[in-house]
Amino acid sequence: MSLLKPGHRGCAGCCDALAGKFVLDALGEDCIVVSPTGCLEVFTTPYPESAWGVPWIHSLFENAAAVASGVEAAFKALGKKNNTKIIAIGGDGATLDIGLQAISGAFERGHDITYICVDNEAYMNTGVQRSGATPLYASTTTSPAGKVSFGNPLHKKNMPAIIAAHGSPYVATASVSYAPDMMKKVKKAAEIKGPTYVHVHAPCCTGWKFDGSKTIEVGKLAVETALWPMYEMENGVVTNVRKLKNRKPVEEYLKIQGRFKHLFAMEGGTGEIKKIQAIADWNVKHFGLE
């Protein structure tokens, strides 16, 4: 049985539950998991129950990296560090927005921790509000599409680049739709000494408005359209890229999600889709995806 036990309260088709399971499958029992506030935290630990088969701690929304660094410092001070992996698993809001300062501090200090961002591109736990990871033109409850709005007007923050700028020895992007690749990267990140980072793209059926049976399919389309480039960076240099053989147009990814449906219904929407296609094209060029 997985170390993330069944019986938790995740939605059917939940990306967070997949991510949590893959992380623990990759790392095994000898790890400590720190969770900031978020879906994964809430649905796995309704007191007195817990789905975690490894030691787990949740403190607050914005401090997971600081808590993880304190765990690491304590293990070092008490002479218990050995091979125990100290892992933070945070959502995009906890990572890109409210927890960014604590992450910056922890990475600068060089703790031997791995931070995993499970990015479902909005504040899902509180009801699909916009975050710094919400992509251009996604409709969320605080960046809704409307008569004079195509939805979120801002671009997704480039978190892996921010982490790489801290001198992290290993930064990778991954997707819950590519489980073996994700597990390989998580394991590698945990085994490399120092602060490492894996940014996992995670389609949320509830927030993105698609059927829960399609989570893997949606995640694959993000990769196949080049909207989610998969790469590894070692010491700031891109060392490995997942190449695309038959790149798909972004419409194929957008049209199966309710959060983008307004782009196909509103006047001028298809013109705006070109801006999203331009993001994919930039990714292809920047990361050499083809």
């Binding site: 600081a66 304190g70 410092a73 304590a74 008490l78």
Partner: peptide, 21 residues
């Protein structure tokens, strides 16, 4: 630990204390 804010100072101690320090 030379942390980047008081908020991280106390947060780090939460993790450390829970680890038995």
């Amino acid at each position: 630990m030379n942390v980047e804010s008081e908020f991280s100072a106390i947060s780090a101690l939460i993790g450390a204390s829970a680890s038995g320090a």
